[in-house]
Design a protein around this nucleic acid. Structure first.
Lengths: 250, 250
DNA sequence: CTAGTTATGTACGCTGGCGAACACAGCGAC
DNA sequence: GTCGCTGTGTTCGCCAGCGTACATAACTAG
């Protein structure tokens, strides 16, 4: 099964390609749903296929001792899962799991590798740029995890997810968010209420709505700005109307 | 000024090249000292040159608000600084600063880019593998920063540094280590004493010695094993005599 | 309607690490 | 020697977030 060009271009990696190259990929791309909880990549196992999300949020997580899971990065329409295939790793060390349901264009690992061997062209360049963006996201995440407060990190997570969903409402339970932030659900409950009291968000069972992006942005750490800017620079993500970062702060 | 092949092969990235390709690089590599505190890369500024350390430890750090610095990864003889040049970034987001004095082979950014354009050969492959290793290191660091205790993280840092120095004694103050772990110096003072009491290490003003690697390893988090294994897999780092990770734990 | 399941609210005591401060010891410069 | 600087030891109160537990609200299946 194949997909069409306009759909493919909703993903930033694919959107960065020439018409000709994208046309070469389309026959191998299959549009698939991304249901919440689905595991796309498991550590220590060969990557079966790579995914280019068009909507939805995928988390990359490291599993530490005894089931303890920590999110190290998120992937949305700006990127792809299975970057380690491009980087030549036999087996990845991180798990990729769908956090917020959506859709993606899927390609088998074999086909993807095949496409990579054809020529050192725009696809490789696009993947290198995305790798750079991930590099920044991972690094910033490491720093953020060390020093920033739960409320700031939660606000940042919500903003990034809204960008990737291109919607201010999406399905998310406190339990899931707690796992991503590697904190107790009780802590999420508290900061969620605080953010709701401040008029930033509202939520009901398993669904959250961002009421005031500016206000929520004020509660987030600057890591949101840094990651967003790095990603936009690398992937030429447009949609400046949604841009929330005025001054080039760091 | 140039350098010789045997020296260059002490760096894992260069060691992964064919004789022919390495010969092509040698004229452009200059052996330089890495004095502690030297800044090799500054965020927001073009990378002037890339470095392939042969001995010494370079930290990659993110600077958060008001001078707060957090280490996101370290670079030694297994890798290089300036990976973002390979990845095509205009300007990096992280600072590279020498933590433990050593030596490196330096190449101008322009020359490096020139070498990259010649052919998609072993150099690109070596760089992609190293990028993958960094990916794992960054991710694991993010998780480790979130959940592991100061003493575990300190022990891990010392082990990794010893590997990169290929020596059990090296210069390091508690103040510097505190910055890297993003904790107070007082906390480092306490865990250092605990590790010394346990017979793992000894130290005097600004110098530290690992007395018992096995014992220190027992005090470190498994992140040491994960990062080491990922790096060895990617870079074919030999020296299994120094290998401290028996079972493939995760 | 009822029962069961899932998502959220909340409370209690605990602790690792923080911020800040001060004391002392080793070492170099004079 | 002694002065000053730098590196290390140590203490005090404090607090964000933890682990645990339990209560309630909302939705779902029968």
């Amino acid at each position: 099964m194949t997909t069409d060009g306009p759909t493919a271009r909703r993903n930033a990696v694919l959107a960065g390609l020439t018409d000709a190259e994208l046309a070469g990929l389309l026959p191998h791309l299959e549009e698939v749903p991304l249901p919440r909880g689905q595991v796309l990549i498991e550590p220590g196992r060969p990557v079966g296929s790579v995914h280019f999300p068009t909507v939805g949020v995928v988390s990359l997580v490291h599993e530490l001792e005894r089931g303890d899971v920590v999110e190290i990065a998120t992937v949305g329409r700006e990127g792809m899962t299975g970057l380690s295939v491009f980087l030549g790793a036999a087996e990845p060390y991180e798990r990729a799991i769908v956090q917020i349901s959506g859709h993606a264009l899927r390609m088998t690992t074999g086909e993807f590798q095949q496409q990579l061997t054809i020529v050192d062209g725009p696809l490789q360049a696009s993947l290198r740029r995305y790798t750079q963006a991930m590099f920044t996201q991972l690094g910033r995440n490491a720093a953020c995890n060390r020093v920033h407060r739960v409320q700031q990190r939660a606000a940042r997570w919500l903003l990034l997810s809204a960008d990737r969903m291109q919607s201010n409402t999406f399905d998310l339970t406190q339990e899931f968010l707690a796992q991503m932030l590697a904190v107790r659900r009780a802590s999420v409950s508290q900061v969620a209420q605080a953010l709701a009291d401040a008029g930033c968000i509202s939520y009901t069972r398993g669904s959250i709505t961002i009421l005031d992006e500016e206000k929520l942005h004020a509660h987030a750490c600057q890591c949101y700005d840094v990651i967003t800017r790095a990603t936009e620079q690398a992937m030429s993500l447009g949609d400046p109307a949604r841009s929330r970062h005025g001054s080039p702060a760091r």
